[in-house]
Simulated scan of single mutants.
Amino acid sequence: MVVPKGQQPRREREWGFAMADGTAHEGGSGDNDGGMVVYWRPGCPYCMKLRLRLRFSGLTYTEVNIWRNPDAAAFVRSVADGNETVPTVTVAGRAMVNPSKRRITDAVRSHAPHLLPDAKNT
């Protein structure tokens, strides 16, 4: 998607809070603020499965559709050996290609504990 200069890009859904801007991955890390980003594409059964599991996890994260965001697709290719392998997830700037929910949860505990559901209530 090409966004004309001066206009806002399409917004992607952030689970847990308000909407997040689709350009949140600029700088290459996927999440400069220590957050979590799930890169996905429509029709991907692995993405559907992981996204469903994450929605029930209580974790805070942003979803980015790589078919609607060329910069996101380029980022995924940069961490997936040139392929657009999804789901790709970043946690505090650490990329994981096709991770399990357990691997994501472990990464959040280690590198971004503020994203855990318990951390929101403290």
Rank of each mutant, 00 (worst) to 15 (best):
M1N: 15
M1L: 14
M1G: 13
V2M: 13
V2N: 15
V2H: 11
V3T: 07
P4L: 03
P4V: 01
P4M: 04
K5Y: 12
G6P: 00
Q7T: 12
R10D: 10
R11I: 15
E12W: 13
R13Q: 10
E14A: 14
W15S: 12
G16I: 07
G16Q: 09
M19A: 13
A20Q: 10
D21R: 13
G22V: 12
G22N: 11
G22H: 13
G22C: 14
A24C: 11
A24D: 10
H25T: 01
E26I: 03
E26P: 07
G28H: 00
S29C: 05
S29L: 05
D31H: 08
D31I: 01
D33P: 06
G34I: 02
G35F: 03
G35W: 03
G35Y: 02
V38K: 05
Y39M: 00
R41G: 06
R41Q: 06
P42G: 09
C44H: 04
P45Y: 04
Y46S: 09
Y46L: 12
C47L: 02
C47G: 04
C47N: 04
M48T: 14
K49S: 12
K49D: 15
K49M: 15
R51V: 11
R51G: 10
R51N: 13
R51E: 14
L54D: 06
S57A: 07
S57M: 09
G58K: 08
G58T: 06
L59W: 08
L59Q: 05
T60E: 14
T62K: 10
T62S: 13
T62H: 15
E63H: 10
V64I: 05
V64L: 07
I66K: 03
I66R: 00
I66N: 00
I66E: 00
W67N: 12
R68G: 10
N69E: 11
N69R: 09
P70T: 03
D71W: 08
F75N: 04
R77F: 02
R77A: 02
S78K: 02
V79L: 00
V79H: 02
V79P: 03
A80Q: 01
A80M: 04
A80D: 02
D81G: 08
G82E: 00
N83P: 07
N83Q: 10
E84L: 03
E84T: 04
T85V: 02
T85G: 02
V86E: 03
V86N: 00
P87N: 06
V89I: 08
V89Y: 04
V89P: 05
T90L: 06
T90A: 08
V91I: 08
A92R: 05
A92W: 03
G93F: 05
R94S: 12
R94Q: 12
R94W: 09
M96Y: 11
V97A: 01
V97N: 01
N98D: 09
N98W: 07
P99A: 06
S100V: 07
R102Y: 10
I104T: 06
T105A: 12
V108K: 04
V108S: 05
S110I: 13
S110G: 10
S110Q: 15
H111G: 08
A112L: 05
A112C: 08
H114A: 11
H114L: 09
L115Y: 06
L116P: 04
D118G: 13
A119K: 06
K120R: 14
N121E: 14
N121L: 15
T122V: 09
